[in-house]
Computed example of a mutant assay.
Amino acid sequence: METVAEIDLKPLDVGGATPDVVDLFAQEAASLTRLARFYLDDRTAAEDLVQEAFIRLSRSAGRIRQRGNAAAYLRSIVINLARDHNRRGLVSLRHRPSALPDAPSAEEDAHTRAERQEVIDALRALPRRQRDCVTLRYYLDLSIPDIAETLGLSANTVKTHLQRGMASLATTLEGTR
């Protein structure tokens, strides 16, 4: 797969405006990679998905009418690519960062990782729309309208999925403690 440096990052003609893909990449790549990591255990695969999302954005730039819609379109692409990756059963290796020199004790680190993994497992067990809404809202800190735009849902539907998802997470996590 191409690296970021090999991708032709030229300005796009998007509805009369010409947003620079390089600027968009600088603004959104890190949060998109974090989003992809909720769906994939492999950081490299998540980074590859984000690169693929930017490639697809540049190929279909004519569909985007407003500059503000590019980020939502990218989030949608990343979510769909991550689902496809998992659906096809591609190999996803578990990479865990090693303890940092100034990290807490091994026991504290293990406990923190276990708690984090419980939350991620509970999140992954949610129905698809609930998981998407909760992830976009509480991990990427998107507003209800931004989530609705990203997922192509109404704001009320997003609120419903958020409420149900959070209730389900609370029940699941209460049961594991």
Rank of each mutant, 00 (worst) to 15 (best):
P97V: 03
S60C: 08
S60K: 14
L90Y: 14
A29G: 03
I77F: 13
A72P: 06
A82D: 04
P97N: 05
V78R: 00
G62A: 07
L123M: 02
E28L: 13
R129T: 12
L57D: 01
S92Q: 14
R129Q: 13
P97C: 10
A46F: 03
R87F: 08
L57E: 00
S76G: 10
A114L: 13
A30F: 09
R87H: 01
A106W: 12
A122Y: 02
L123C: 01
A106Y: 10
I55L: 12
I120T: 13
D132F: 10
S58Q: 15
T112K: 09
T135E: 02
V78A: 00
Q66R: 11
L35Y: 01
R34K: 09
S98R: 14
N86C: 08
V78Y: 01
G89K: 00
V91H: 12
R34F: 10
Q27P: 04
D48A: 15
I64S: 09
A53G: 08
A103M: 04
D41K: 14
A46L: 01
R94A: 10
T135Y: 05
R56W: 05
T44F: 13
D109L: 14
Q130H: 07
D132G: 01
E115D: 06
A45T: 01
A114Q: 11
P127N: 04
D48R: 11
Y73F: 14
L100G: 03
A36C: 09
V91M: 13
R129A: 15
V91W: 12
D84G: 11
V134L: 05
N86R: 15
L74K: 00
T135N: 09
R63W: 13
L90W: 11
A125M: 04
G62R: 08
H95V: 09
T112Y: 15
T135L: 15
Q130R: 07
L49V: 04
S58W: 14
I79D: 02
A61P: 03
N69P: 02
A103N: 07
E47K: 05
E118A: 14
R59P: 04
H85L: 03
L126F: 02
R43G: 06
R116H: 12
G68K: 02
R75F: 00
A61Q: 07
S58I: 13
T44L: 14
C133E: 05
S58T: 15
P101V: 00
V134D: 09
S58R: 15
